[in-house]
Design a protein around this nucleic acid. Structure first.
Lengths: 191, 191
DNA sequence: TGTTTGATTGACTGATCAATCAATAAAAAT
DNA sequence: ATTTTTATTGATTGATCAGTCAATCAAACA
């Protein structure tokens, strides 16, 4: 089997397996053995490529953040008016790839893990800040600064809340409904 | 030491210690030994009174739910008009006892744990349903049913989101701001 | 062909922890 | 004063896991 250049493939497979495993169990309390089995390799290989469990989980989180960041960049590039930019930011958060049950469950576990791990918190902060500044940027072109800050705070919390509900309750608002709720909130506040 | 009637005291002490320990660490990944030490007793005693770790954690959750339920009942008893009832429901969720950092952190861990434990999910559902039906009840007296359902969905998610942010970010909206955000959301939607 | 090199794993280790239990101690009951 | 009952713990067990390492294997390469 040992063809050269396996490393990037294995890393990717293990990260994907980690997302699936964490998403299925709904917990960061997954064993390296479980992730490795999901990826179809031995636990030792995970250690070989990532150095340890914590680093595998951090790599997994960076992967999720990078995907979200790329989706966001792409969506913003497609939007021209401030109003379109606002919509794009909302829509990305609820796009199929981001709002898939397993992905949401994984996000949620990382959110909670951030209470313990400073590195996890730091990574999450990067995303939170980016979302915040993009939303503020677009909104300050549609209303005054104080109002924009107020709307950003509310919309941000609303998105987080819809995520947590989506992960927990089968009857939680689906993608379309979630977008409607946030969009409506912003529309009404903008008057 | 063995005076009779220690059981209720010890149970209460262990539950309080569990909330503190979980809140401090921001994780359900606490050992029985840690909780017992926080309560000033031996780990064996925790097993003696609760039978096992899982049952201690479930008892802890039931305790939090009961407290929230009692606060809610008391607040609703004090409110007479539908508008007052809406405000009371919001205010209880952000009252000092419920919005204390440790309590919020503990809530958050239980939320995530609900993804794995059906009993935890069942217990959370009881609270979620109660909040939902109380809010719907009050709102249907102020607007039509569809609109009430929409507002309830949004306000519920908004509250959850504010909780998660409160637990994670030092600069998240404080109690007053959180109440303002939810109240404003409802007020604006009611027109 | 023989040698190197990266990929991969099975077997092992040490640490952590939930859970058990027999033993102790002290109040309460007789 | 003796017995019973309740509270409490130290010591121990067994299971689970993260992490290590030496051994293997097969491609790449000289």
């Amino acid at each position: 089997m040992p063809k050269i250049g396996m490393e990037p493939m294995r890393r990717r497979e293990l990260i994907d397996a980690a997302i699936r495993t964490i998403g299925q169990r709904g917990s960061l309390d997954v064993t390296v053995a479980q992730i490795a089995q999901e990826a179809g390799v031995s636990p030792a290989l995970a250690h070989h490529y990532f150095g340890g469990k914590e680093q595998l989980l951090l790599a997994t989180m960076r992967h999720l953040l990078r995907e979200l960041g790329q989706d966001l960049s792409a969506a913003l590039r497609r939007a021209s008016t401030p109003r379109e930019r606002v919509y794009a930011i909302i829509a990305v958060n609820f796009s199929p790839s981001q709002f898939a049950p397993q992905t949401v469950a994984a996000w949620l576990t990382f959110y909670v893990h951030a209470q313990q791990s400073t590195e996890t918190r730091r990574l999450l902060r990067v995303y939170a800040r980016r979302l915040h500044s993009n939303l503020m940027d677009a909104l300050t072109r549609l209303c005054d600064r104080d109002k924009a800050a107020f709307i950003t705070e509310g919309a941000g919390a609303l998105i987080d809340g819809l995520y947590i509900r989506h992960a927990l309750w089968p009857h939680a608002p689906d993608t379309a409904r979630a977008i409607e709720l946030v969009e409506d909130y912003i529309t009404v506040k903008l008057g």
